[in-house]
Simulated scan of single mutants.
Amino acid sequence: MKFRMTRPRHLLAAALLTLAATLPARAAQEPYGETLWGWRFTQDVVRGTTICRAISSNPSTPGFIIQRLGNGNFFLSLLAPGVPRGNYEEGHLGSGNFTTKVNIRSDGSRIYIPADDHDMTQIGRTGEFEWGAGPVRGRTIRGNARGMGFNDVVRRLRDCTRANGGR
């Protein structure tokens, strides 16, 4: 009878495959529909919550992402490296003659602005919005964004969350 030695790398591969089979599956971002007005759409489930995203490829709004959660809330996310990490409870979101106070959160390179359906409708009327976070060293940091096809983008995000069992 002849015995064959198993190579260490084969043992390692078998152990890793066994371990991988016991770990829970993780959802990954998947595409949702075709690109529209330069926006790419994805859907994802994070900790049991549906998140649909529109990601801008427009050079005038690099890094602009609109997220809609399954509960119907939106988040506008923009690159804002000049806004230090923190929460800005005196922030604002505005479009045309509409302005509302919001709690803007910054991770040091990106800001997250909460919005609801009313806010998104107001922004959709002009297709652009402005934001302000502060005070930062005694002043408010401001920015703005324009989104081509904004109403169509918001409509697609609403369809996405509904298709995934949300509002």
Rank of each mutant, 00 (worst) to 15 (best):
G86R: 06
V46R: 15
E90G: 10
M148H: 01
L76N: 05
T49W: 13
R9G: 11
H118A: 13
V136Q: 03
I111A: 06
L19F: 12
T6Q: 05
G165T: 10
A80R: 03
G124E: 00
L19P: 04
A80D: 08
H92P: 01
G108W: 03
I55L: 03
L23W: 11
G143R: 07
N58T: 12
A163N: 00
E90N: 15
R167K: 14
V153F: 07
N58P: 06
R146D: 04
N71Y: 09
P84A: 04
G72Y: 04
R110Q: 12
R53W: 04
Y32M: 03
G147D: 13
R68W: 03
F64L: 07
N151M: 13
S56C: 05
T126I: 12
H10W: 11
D117L: 08
Y88M: 10
C52Y: 04
N87R: 07
N87W: 07
L79C: 04
L12D: 05
G147E: 00
T50R: 11
V45D: 02
V136H: 07
P84T: 00
Y112G: 08
T140W: 01
H92A: 10
V154G: 00
A13M: 06
L12K: 04
G108E: 05
N97G: 11
S56D: 03
G147T: 08
P59M: 02
Q67E: 13
I65R: 05
R146L: 03
